[in-house]
């Protein structure tokens, strides 16, 4: 059973979101990294890039497949995890910590309500 921290929010596309002071830190879940297997490459956006909710902001590639990653909230990229350039496997080993992908300045706080809580995400994983 994969790890689903209680304090985070989630998406149906298996991203996690940590809301802090008007920012959203986004990564992929433990369930997602397990399903992908060995991650070989992470493509991330430039700082300052602007996205609508639901836009693809990058790609996570594993030996098996390349998967788009989606931003669940409208926002502007404040920081990207550039360490992943040389160590993409960190997404496998620490998906909720050092394996974070981007930090985004949230434009519309009301969109946070659209995210899943840990319980709802856990149910989603089990139903798959």
């Amino acid at each position: 059973m994969s790890n689903i921290p209680k304090e985070l929010k989630y998406t149906k596309e298996h991203e996690w979101v940590r809301i802090e002071d008007g920012f959203a830190v986004v990564g992929i879940t433990d369930h997602a990294q397990e399903a992908l297997g060995d991650i070989t490459f992470v493509e991330l956006p430039e700082e300052g890039a602007e996205y609508e909710a639901g836009d693809s902001f990058g790609v996570v590639e594993s030996v098996k497949a390349a998967s788009d990653i989606y931003l669940p909230l409208k926002g502007t990229v404040d920081a990207v995890n550039s360490d992943l350039e040389d160590a993409p496997e960190t997404v496998n080993t620490d998906p909720y910590g050092d394996g974070w992908l981007v930090k985004v300045r949230i434009e519309d706080d009301s969109e946070v309500a659209n995210l899943l809580d840990a319980e709802a995400y856990s149910a989603l994983c089990e139903s798959e």
């Binding site: 596309e13 298996h14 991203e15 992929i28 399903a35 992908l36 497949a65 998967s67 990653i69 798959e128």
Partner: peptide
């Protein structure tokens, strides 16, 4: 992220 078919 695409989900996988786990029917076995």
């Amino acid at each position: 992220m695409a989900s996988e078919d786990t029917s076995e």
